[in-house]
Simulated scan of single mutants.
Amino acid sequence: MPAHFHRPPRLLPVTALAAMLALWLPAQAAPEPIALPIVRQPLTLSWYANLHPSAATSLHDLSEQTAYRELAERTGIRVAFQHPPIGGEKERFKLLVVSGKYPDVVEADWADYPGGPAKALKDGMIVPLNALIAHHAPNLSALLDANPDIRRQISTDDGTIYCFPMLYIDPRVRNVWGRRSGRTGSTSSACASRPRWPNGTRC
């Protein structure tokens, strides 16, 4: 499931996460170097996301995953996850929408938002990402330029990008995860599809 941004009180969380997510992308022809850590002072991002039942058997929240611990160490950015109760995800999402108090990142199926992503953008629940990606995530920008089908899947009809895609398009990444976890992952994914993580969760 892709990651989306609400309208934040400051730009730093959005730009920091853009750079943070860029670390996951497979290398392009001429990837831009990323200076680590990303932030001068430690930063915590709040992230709303469902927790898959199979993950909940071994994790209290996704920040306990090795991948997020490693990202926090490398980037200086810690993710504080907010997980709705298992079985009550849709109801909790509705409550989040009407609350007007949003975390820095909302990972959700925007088909559940009345009017879809275009209405969520209009309502200010999430923000357009075109300019932010172009300026702060050059590797992702290059990937989208080279893969217009992926761009279409994360854009509204007028071309507004409203989410970061979840991608598994490099088998080397999958193989590394498989060797480290003893499991294998799916091959590729964007927006609507949900790749399987090594611990069994699906995003």
Rank of each mutant, 00 (worst) to 15 (best):
A22Q: 01
P85I: 01
A142F: 03
R74C: 05
W47N: 15
E70P: 00
P128E: 03
V127P: 01
S54F: 01
V173L: 13
V105D: 06
I169Y: 08
T57E: 11
T156F: 05
S54C: 06
N139H: 08
P114E: 04
L62T: 07
L144Q: 07
N147T: 11
A192S: 15
E73T: 06
S46N: 13
Q82R: 12
C191A: 15
P103Y: 02
G116R: 10
W24Y: 11
P37I: 10
T156P: 01
T201G: 08
E107H: 10
T66H: 11
S181C: 15
E91P: 13
E32K: 13
A56F: 05
R172H: 12
A30R: 10
A29V: 01
H60R: 09
Q82D: 11
G182K: 15
V127C: 08
L59W: 04
M1E: 12
A18Q: 04
H136M: 03
G200I: 05
F93D: 05
I126Q: 00
S189F: 12
R194C: 14
Y68A: 02
F164Q: 02
E91T: 14
V105I: 15
R180K: 15
G116I: 09
R78G: 10
A55G: 07
D157W: 02
N130K: 01
D149K: 09
L51G: 04
S54P: 02
V127S: 07
D158A: 08
L23F: 05
P13R: 12
M166Y: 12
I38S: 04
G159I: 08
H4F: 13
N147W: 04
F81L: 11
A137G: 05
T57S: 10
M1G: 09
A19M: 09
A137S: 11
E89N: 14
E107N: 12
L11N: 04
A56R: 05
G185K: 06
G159E: 02
I38E: 11
Q41N: 07
L96V: 09
N199S: 00
V173T: 14
T184K: 09
A16R: 07
L96H: 09
V176Q: 10
A131G: 00
P31L: 02
N175P: 04
Q41R: 00
S58C: 08
P85F: 05
K119G: 05
